[in-house]
Design a protein around this nucleic acid. Sequence first.
DNA 1: AATTAAAATTGATCTACATCACATTAAATT
DNA 2: AATTTAATGTGATGTAGATCAATTTTAATT
Lengths: 190, 190
Amino acid sequence: MQDKYSLLRQHIEEIVSITDEEWHFVKSHFEFKSYKKHQFLIQAGQAVDFEYWIIKGLVKAYSIDDKGKEHILQFAMENYWVSDHCAFQHQEPGTIFVDCLEDSAFFCLSLENREKICFKVPAMANFFRIKSNHGYINLQQRILSLLTMTAESRYAYLLNKLPQLVQRVPKKLIAAYLGVSRETLSRFNN
Amino acid sequence: MQDKYSLLRQHIEEIVSITDEEWHFVKSHFEFKSYKKHQFLIQAGQAVDFEYWIIKGLVKAYSIDDKGKEHILQFAMENYWVSDHCAFQHQEPGTIFVDCLEDSAFFCLSLENREKICFKVPAMANFFRIKSNHGYINLQQRILSLLTMTAESRYAYLLNKLPQLVQRVPKKLIAAYLGVSRETLSRFNN
DNA sequence: AATTAAAATTGATCTACATCACATTAAATT
DNA sequence: AATTTAATGTGATGTAGATCAATTTTAATT
């Protein structure tokens, strides 16, 4: 049964162990969806129904400022989790956009279902705790990079850390992620 | 029994419910410590033994760049959690400093003890999961503020969000938190 | 209270990076 | 293959904020 569900179970069992019975329960709370390139998972102003675990594909999460400029909060690809976590958590209208840079497939988890599985299956509470902790650590490092590094060294750092991402994504989006204009990025090294 | 331990229990029970028995178990895994102003909880290059829950006081978590300049990752006061989470999680030498801006008191939790209580008391796994999630959301908002706002509007935003912090802390540290020089900060508004 | 040290202000100058404008190249779409 | 659309590159110029330097104000410490 090497179907798409088994990928999710593998992802979970890299962090915690769950029994077949628990997995059966957990599995039933996820919903599969797939989207084409350019389609939106989340739009500012609208309800945020899910957190998305990415089976396949690549998305960007971003906000648009008053001048219409795009600022990228996150790129998310296979095995990443993405949502407008703030709006999702508080069940408020979203403030950011999430759309697909490639055709993509997801397992979707509602807030209600997430809380159900976390309180019914303790291992899942630990799974999300540990995942969330890793996410927190990553964001702290990004904040430090924004405070301490020049745009050019942030670019060098990203090239080193996620070379495949820089290949997979137009440079103007890399610029919007690094907090630099695309013109300036284009003037950096090679 | 309105001692310092009851504050911690209150803090936990704002998020999840635990029985007296569970609390007894949890409580025994925390260690109380207090530090004077200017003392270090964590220093770059040294082991990071704990996560700290702040009972009383105020600390800053920061890194020092190659030019000796200080960049503040976090201010933490009563009811906040603070550590070098990255080093703590991986049990590696720290890369940041955490020191006290005021005389402070803490409950300290080792990694081993954190995992023990999370796997023994499911409610605690949920407590840390939910706390970590909130932290993640806050950091995302800070990243967006660094990407989208000018230094001046970041300052206005902070003044509005945490006015008491801005009172409690020298402005040059506020500058180091916002990612702006103290001279520039001093030229803003009122 | 006196002394020392730290914090905040203010001016002058410098620089990393933004913005604007337009040319070039590459990738979608018909 | 031809046409449209998006991505990238490059020069010229502008600006938010940095850095340097010196002064004033405020807070610690003896």
